[in-house]
Computed example of a mutant assay.
Amino acid sequence: MTSTSQRSSGADVGAVTWLGKNGRLAAVPTGRRARRRLPHLLVGVLLVVVCVGGALWWAASAHDRVSVLAIARPVNVGHVLELADVHQVEISVADGVATIPADQAGTVLGKPMATSLTAGALLTPGSLGPSTIPASGKAVVAVGLKTGQFPLELAPGAPVLVVVAASSSTTALPTVQGSGDGPTWPATVTGVARAENDQTTVISLQMPSGTAPTLARVPAGQVTLVMLAGGER
């Protein structure tokens, strides 16, 4: 077999041609054609590095997750905790966050709730024991509301905004938060006694002790509750 180098207008510089058995010239790509393969190799290496890094990150994240107890359904203050009230969830716990490991479920069953919690809330050591409601400087007031005056999703532990419709008897009431014709106050739901047949539903609200008596004097039918996002006030 005979080899020869050939230059032409359509061939790459440095290409080598070989004379095959059939007498035809076959070009072997060298130089620039070979160098064109380098970017593809670099992309492949980069993909491998990204995949390995992602796998290591996922493994580290999964290692930091722990199984803890959370509330499976809304519970009110004073309720004796039952097995159906809790379930296991896996979370990444930050430093300083108090939780109860899932394998300690037997130690919390049969204990009273110190506060009201909504479904999905994490169970903490402070959630159990003697009632902490009302908290220091707070008072609990009950309001009777009809359908349409409060969200159907309302449950113990939910933060709300108490909105009082303006009337001749409420224009002199102080406005603690917000603006408008009537006063508004922040509060937290501590209990919900839902009525049957569209009758009045009694809702217990924890709010500053100086504001609770004022709300108690508001005539029935002038109060509406607006449920806020968790932690919003």
Rank of each mutant, 00 (worst) to 15 (best):
V162F: 05
L161R: 15
V176E: 14
Q222L: 11
L145F: 03
A158E: 07
V140Y: 04
A158N: 12
T147M: 04
N197M: 14
A216V: 11
P174W: 03
L205T: 05
S204N: 11
F150N: 08
A155F: 02
P130L: 15
S167E: 07
G137D: 02
A220I: 06
I133D: 02
G210T: 10
L205Y: 03
L205Q: 05
V226R: 08
P208W: 02
V143A: 12
Q177Y: 15
A216D: 15
P156N: 10
G182N: 15
S168G: 09
A216P: 06
G191N: 08
V223T: 10
P134V: 10
A216L: 12
K146V: 13
A187R: 01
A193E: 15
V164G: 04
L152F: 06
M207D: 07
I133W: 02
P130C: 13
P208A: 06
V176G: 12
P213R: 09
L161D: 09
M207F: 03
L215E: 14
I203Q: 07
T214E: 12
P159C: 09
T132L: 14
G210Q: 09
A193I: 12
G157W: 01
Q177M: 13
T184L: 06
L145I: 09
V202E: 11
P186G: 00
G178V: 10
T224G: 01
G137Y: 00
P213Q: 11
V176I: 13
K146W: 08
E196A: 13
G178S: 09
A135R: 02
V202Q: 13
A155K: 06
G191K: 10
S167R: 09
A220K: 05
G157H: 02
V160M: 03
G182Q: 14
L154H: 14
E196D: 13
G178F: 05
R194E: 11
A135W: 00
V162E: 09
P130H: 14
G210C: 01
T175Q: 12
T214D: 10
P183A: 11
S136T: 07
L205P: 00
G137A: 00
S179C: 03
P151R: 10
P134I: 09
A193N: 15
T184D: 12
S131W: 00
A220N: 12
L161T: 13
V202K: 12
S136Y: 01
V163S: 13
P213S: 10
T170H: 02
G180A: 05
P151C: 05
T211A: 08
A195I: 14
A187N: 01
P156F: 07
S167I: 07
A220V: 11
T200P: 01
